[in-house]
């Protein structure tokens, strides 16, 4: 589904990603973790071209991402993204948030879009919030709406950029539950997160990054049980220690 070959990215003089190779297969769930500044957010944002790589190749579902706006558009229609700060549109109701893209990008008729939207709201367990405004919802509810909004476009792949980092602890579970369900239904997922419990439950592979490089990549049992590198060991002791 995703192929990254020797990808490098600079922000001015600072190199955020150093020759990263990564592949995510269809139906695979990959969790990316690492200390802050390791480049994991940058990496995931390359997949839908919210950031652009300078070297290497990024291929999503067979389409190579270049400066050509058509490739970018094609990819973005098939890839859904959930952000750390939700980024719901405050001037629209929950339902309108969900139907905006299907109506304007995929030209789905409004009625159909609304039906889909309500279905998905039910799936994330907040069907009654359809006509409320985002500011009237709790953080956990808002993030679930954000997930539903991305799902309304029927993506082939879902990206999660630290989806629970901005939530109060008691709301993290409700969002993770939705993500676990999504995973069980077979969605291809790439998740940047600190929630190791989620990784253990759901991930097919854990990718550990540090200093812009992929340091270790292994199935969770191996990664958590017997990390091969010192840096991974250090990271795990810090994250799981408390």
């Amino acid at each position: 589904m995703i192929e990254m070959i020797k990808v490098s990215k600079w922000f001015a003089a600072f190199q955020a990603l150093k020759e990263v190779d990564l592949a995510v297969g269809r139906g695979e769930k990959v969790v990316v973790c690492g200390p802050s500044g390791s480049g994991k957010s940058t990496l995931i944002r390359l997949v839908n071209r919210l950031e652009a790589h300078q070297e290497g190749r990024v291929i999503v579902d067979g389409v190579e991402l270049t400066d050509d706006p058509r490739t970018i558009d094609t990819v973005r229609r098939e890839v859904g993204m959930v952000f750390q700060s939700f980024n719901l549109f405050p001037h629209l109701t929950v339902l309108e948030n969900l139907t905006l893209a299907p109506v304007w990008v995929k030209h789905v008729p409004r009625k159909e879009a609304e039906e889909t939207a309500r279905e998905l709201l039910a799936r994330v367990r907040i069907p009654e919030q359809a006509d409320k405004y985002p500011s009237q919802l709790s953080g956990g509810q808002q993030q679930r709406v954000a997930i539903a909004r991305a799902l309304c476009m029927r993506p082939k792949l879902m990206l999660f950029d630290e989806p629970t980092s901005a939530l109060d602890p008691e709301m993290i579970k409700e969002v993770l539950d939705v993500m676990v369900e999504l995973a069980r239904e077979g969605m291809t997922m790439m998740v940047v997160t600190h929630e190791m419990g989620f990784a253990k439950t759901v991930a097919d592979r854990v990718v550990f990054m540090d200093g812009g490089r992929v340091v270790e990549a292994a199935p969770p049992a191996e990664f958590f049980g017997a990390p091969k590198t010192d840096r991974a060991r250090l990271f795990l002791s810090q994250v799981l220690g408390h």
């Binding site: 839908n48 919210l50 558009d73 973005r76 229609r77 890839v79 859904g80 993204m81 952000f83 700060s85 980024n87 719901l88 549109f89 905006l100 893209a101 304007w104 990008v105 995929k106 954000a146 909004r149 991305a150 476009m153």
Partner: peptide, 19 residues
């Protein structure tokens, strides 16, 4: 983040600005 979310959903630049 608003423009990013709109772009991630596939909205074009003019659509993002307008909507």
């Amino acid at each position: 983040g608003q423009t990013e979310a709109a772009h991630a959903l596939g909205l074009s630049r003019p659509q993002t600005t307008r909507l």
